[in-house]
């Protein structure tokens, strides 16, 4: 049960934020910027994911992309 609580809190927070949004289509100039892309540089993200995947016990969360390695 304790493990479910953080999941529910985050989901509730997001739903709350969704309800608050009143951004019109013509006001999305800032979020369309290069600097505001969720993955601004795919290679930066790929390298970091690969290093952390091979050196740590955790993975996942950000995407579903597969393609593992037998990292020593």
């Amino acid at each position: 049960m304790k493990k479910i609580i953080p999941f529910c809190c985050l989901a509730g927070l997001t739903i709350l934020l969704t309800a608050c949004s009143t951004v019109a289509p013509w006001e999305r100039d800032v979020t369309a910027r290069k600097s505001m892309q969720l993955t601004k540089n795919a290679n930066f993200a790929a390298i970091n994911d690969h290093i952390y995947y091979s050196k740590e016990g955790s993975t996942g969360g950000r995407s579903t992309d597969g393609g593992g390695c037998g990292c020593n």
Partner: peptide
Amino acid sequence: VSATAGITQVITRNWLVQLNYS
């Protein structure tokens, strides 16, 4: 086998958030 569900929300003109579960 893996699965991901996510939501990306523009909160204000200058702020967006992303929530994922995998």
